[in-house]
Design a protein around this nucleic acid. Structure first.
Lengths: 157, 157
DNA sequence: CGTTATACCATTGACGCCCATGAAATCCCA
DNA sequence: TGGGATTTCATGGGCGTCAATGGTATAACG
């Protein structure tokens, strides 16, 4: 299973191309589809682009299909996820072109921050990412008592 | 298995022709029938055109047949689905002509939005699609706890 | 004979593919 | 351990191809 770690900031050129970080591409070499799948975040507290490999989307499709494919609940889910998803193929150098509506969603201008999130990753406008992380840190501090139930990796980490 | 992803908006010309998006056609190359199968949506909350390849219709038929083929439920289901289905052949450029009653059903004028839904896709009037997706997104958010039982595509989904 | 449907062709704009450059990190060797 | 060589990556640009779209010709049909 792919594991996406760390954050990389890459430039978007005049043709809208961005290099997907090499470590992330390395995590995708086993996939049948040579590229990534992206869709907008559905969170109310941040706007970013969610990304993953095709294999993960196929697992999702199988899950929806196995359940009643005509129930309104799954119609909603499938519409939102699959309809909003876009396949982005790699060019020869491992770059992708982020569609306009996703760039707009995440307010991405000429730089994109690729943020590893374990089994998936996200694409952010770098400034928005910094702001969000600051807020997240505050929330973590506020919730520290609760989180301490898990073995903490250290105060600063 | 074909996987339909993303949304494409194509124009309908004066002769009623629309290009089926190339990625969707690519998912259909293995099919015996060179075209798609369409039928009206049966939902009470939206009007769109459902579409898929012939292979899926055959699987659907097999499914209905395998279960009690004489129960009222399945007779109804089969009548409605198969009776309302239309085969749309591709022309040389991968276009189809949507029958009038289906265009009317989905209120499609001169633009059609092709929406991937995993194993199938839908054809919408673009404006209606935007409205529906906004509502669906709210419902998905509300139901997030339930859906988390399926492999989640990420924090935001 | 007129009308409608189907097959064929032509245009254009976007996108995929290729190569070139430069910077940075790594590796190797002295 | 320091310095040089090599490779990997990110980035930029040019060119060819394909897809979407519009139009025209031909065939089927009333």
């Amino acid at each position: 299973m792919a594991l996406y770690l760390s954050t990389f900031i890459n430039r978007i050129d005049s043709k809208g191309r961005v290099s997907v970080p090499a470590p992330f591409r390395a995590a995708l070499v086993d996939e049948l589809y040579n590229g990534i799948v992206v869709f907008p975040s559905f969170s109310e507290i941040f706007n970013a682009v969610e990304a993953c490999g095709m294999a993960r989307m196929e697992r999702l499709s199988a899950g929806v299909d196995r359940l009643n494919p005509f129930s309104d609940e799954h119609v909603d889910f499938a519409s939102v996820i699959f309809g909003a998803s876009v396949q982005l193929p790699f060019d020869g150098e491992g770059r992708v072109i982020l569609p306009d509506h996703l760039r707009a969603h995440a307010a991405i201008d000429d730089q994109a921050a690729f943020v590893g999130r374990g089994a998936t990753f996200q694409i952010w406008e770098p400034g928005a990412l910094i702001d969000f992380q600051a807020e997240a840190q505050s929330r973590v501090r506020a919730a520290r008592a609760t989180l301490a139930l898990d073995p903490p990796p250290g105060d600063g980490a």
